[in-house]
Amino acid sequence: SEEELEEFAKEVLRRGITIIVNGIRITEVEIFVKVLREILEKR
């Protein structure tokens, strides 16, 4: 749901943790923004 997305976004921003994806360091915020864009483009 959109509320869950908002909560996830807030949690990500609070933690600001960097994770490893395919050997490249990407912040969770960047991943969230990318996923959010993909979701919005599909609408």
Rank of each mutant, 00 (worst) to 15 (best):
S1K: 08
S1D: 07
E2H: 11
E2D: 13
E3Y: 14
E3K: 13
E4G: 09
E4P: 05
E4T: 11
E4N: 08
L5V: 03
L5W: 10
L5R: 01
E6L: 15
E7N: 11
F8H: 02
A9K: 03
A9C: 14
A9V: 09
K10F: 07
E11P: 01
E11S: 12
E11T: 09
V12L: 15
V12R: 03
L13M: 07
L13R: 00
L13I: 08
L13N: 00
R14Y: 04
R15H: 04
R15N: 05
R15K: 06
G16L: 15
G16Q: 07
I17F: 14
I17T: 07
I17K: 07
T18G: 05
T18P: 13
T18W: 14
I19T: 01
I20M: 09
V21D: 00
V21Q: 03
V21I: 14
V21S: 02
V21K: 03
N22E: 04
N22V: 05
N22G: 07
N22H: 07
N22I: 06
G23R: 07
I24H: 08
I24S: 04
I24V: 10
R25E: 08
R25G: 03
R25C: 06
R25W: 09
I26H: 03
I26F: 04
T27Q: 05
E28I: 06
E28Y: 10
E28L: 11
E28K: 08
E28G: 06
E28H: 06
V29Q: 02
V29L: 13
V29A: 06
V29D: 01
V29N: 01
V29E: 02
E30C: 12
E30V: 11
E30K: 11
I31Q: 14
F32R: 01
F32N: 00
F32G: 00
F32K: 01
V33K: 04
V33R: 06
V33L: 12
K34M: 13
K34G: 03
K34H: 04
K34V: 04
V35H: 05
V35N: 02
V35I: 14
V35Q: 02
L36Q: 01
L36S: 00
L36T: 02
L36C: 06
R37V: 05
R37K: 12
R37Q: 05
R37N: 03
E38V: 10
E38G: 07
I39E: 03
I39P: 00
L40F: 12
L40H: 03
L40C: 13
L40W: 14
L40Q: 03
E41P: 04
E41I: 11
E41Q: 13
E41F: 14
